[in-house]
Amino acid sequence: MAEEVSSQMNSLSISETNPSSSATISLVSGDDIVFKVEPTIAKEMETVQSFIDETDGKITTIPLPNISSHDLPYVIEYCEKSIAGKITKEFEAEFVKKLNNEEVKELFLAANYLNIKKLLDFLSQVIADRIANKSVEYVRRYFGIENDFTPEEEAKLREELAWTFTGVDPDDEDEN
């Protein structure tokens, strides 16, 4: 319920500032697909907004070479919900259900690149949830980290940190 209340707070502040409608912004994904969005959506993406501001709003077509046309709709959907003050626990649960591990990571990078604080924070929570209680090997695979310890070094570390292993789940067979 608390989440609900705070999301309502967001909607309050939104409904008080009446967004004036002006020209739409075109976001161009890395694979050259154009997505037209309202200026209010662009505001949520700090990287895009600062680009618009730098050019005094003259340029409304923004290339986003690092973001694919597969990921961009998710980002836009989240931003739309966010400005409508409708980010609820239920919405986030549904949103994340659709995403596999690879997509979560891609969206995380997209959110980082676009500098969307709320989405970044939400996705870090999602990633944290997905690596919680997982083995060291699993987390390495998840992040694509190369193990640069010698077996002796690793064994020593593991011994020192034995207490942290009480809650580790056995690795699942399917990992994606």
């Binding site: 870090s124 944290a128 690596i131 919680a132 390495r140 980290i145 310890f149 690793e154 942290t164």
Partner: peptide
Amino acid sequence: ILHVIISHLSIEEVFRTSILSK
């Protein structure tokens, strides 16, 4: 950015990340 992710983990998980790599 990595701090942001691991700050969401519980303490023993945070600690365990030190085994991932140097």
